[in-house]
């Protein structure tokens, strides 16, 4: 199931999503993570961020809300303390990059240019849980465009952009993002939501709102991957993420147009799910004598035309 994107060979199209897998180190206590197609790191910012006050998570119907606030050690500590532990793992890492300004995004990427294990950057323009940066870029089309252009002008590695679903028209954001130079799109980040504790008569999360993830958002994610594929699918690869817990969910994303998928919240409630999804996709393809994985990418679009 090897795939090639941006001239990089990935063992398979199943990756773990940012913020649901740390930097891969914790998972070494569970299984051999070199079986994964790639690991997308927890968001990395220029300076360390302590994250939001608890309460940070709460379960909701078929999903959960989170408001972690991008807790991370900052790029310098990442390179010093974490990178040495992952640099010999036999799979690719993609660094999820977060900044409060354009310059910060560029600086974090530049700091990682020499780190060979990091094969690409995923710009996080869609975290709904921080006050500055992130989603501000993801919800303002001209800010997004300018940021993507600036980063692309400075860095060598491929730049993919994780888009927010909390916008009016994902097609327009997809188109402008690609025209600004993005090498690929990642859809979707969490949907903004909230939960109220009726006995305390107050919001559960310390930040009031949080990001909804889990099986509840699968149909929204599939729809957005579908629309992005219609808009820019002939120009750049689309990476599907959102609500993938089983191989069937991944297959929906792929048939909607995803060249690879990311498993997120499922890492929490079913930590071995990425491996099960790899097996499930592989079996599905073999049973149908499909010779290449790429043949099923966007397959549902072609069927619709017939």
């Amino acid at each position: 199931m090897e795939i090639t994107l941006w001239n990089i060979k990935f063992k398979n199209p199943v990756w773990t999503a940012s913020g649901t897998f740390g930097y891969g180190i914790e998972a070494l206590e569970l299984y051999d993570i070199s079986k994964l197609g790639a690991v997308v790191t927890k968001g990395i910012s220029l300076e360390p961020r302590r994250g939001n006050e608890p309460v940070r998570i709460v379960e909701t119907p078929c999903g959960m809300l989170n408001s972690i606030g991008l807790q991370n050690p900052g790029v310098e500590n990442f390179l010093k303390d974490i990178y040495p532990k992952i640099k010999d793992i036999d799979t690719h890492f993609i660094a999820n990059i977060f900044g409060e300004t354009e310059e910060e995004y560029v600086e974090v990427c530049l700091a990682l240019e020499e780190a060979e294990k990091i094969v690409a950057y995923e710009l996080n323009l869609s975290c709904p849980n921080v006050k500055k940066g992130g989603i501000v870029f993801g919800q303002d089309i001209s800010l997004m465009s300018s940021l993507v252009e600036k980063v692309k002008a400075k860095v060598k590695k491929p730049v993919i952009v994780k888009l927010s679903p909390n916008v009016s028209d994902i097609r327009e954001f997809s188109r402008v993002c690609v025209e600004s130079g993005a090498d690929g799109l990642v859809l979707i980040n969490t949907l903004m939501g909230m939960k109220i504790d009726i006995y305390k008569a107050k919001p559960v999360l310390s930040t009031v709102t949080g990001g909804l993830s889990g099986p509840a958002i699968l149909p929204v994610a599939v729809r957005m991957v579908w629309q992005a594929y219609e808009t820019v699918g002939d120009r750049v690869p689309i990476i599907g993420v959102g609500g993938i817990g089983k191989w069937e969910d991944a297959m929906e994303h792929i048939m909607a147009g995803a060249s690879a998928v990311q498993v997120g919240t499922a890492n929490f409630y079913d930590p071995f799910s990425p491996l099960k999804i790899i097996e499930g996709i592989d079996r599905f393809i073999k049973e149908r004598n499909i010779t290449q994985f790429t043949h099923i990418v966007g397959m549902a679009h072609r069927k619709r035309l017939k």
């Binding site: 994250g51 940070r56 998570i57 972690i68 919240t265 930590p271």
Partner: peptide, 21 residues
């Protein structure tokens, strides 16, 4: 409140003496 139990969701944090989590 804990979503994963194995260190990756960062949901269950408690404040440390140095004010990190």
């Amino acid at each position: 409140p804990m979503a994963c139990g194995w260190g990756v969701c960062l949901g269950c944090v408690i404040k440390s003496k140095d004010n990190s989590f």
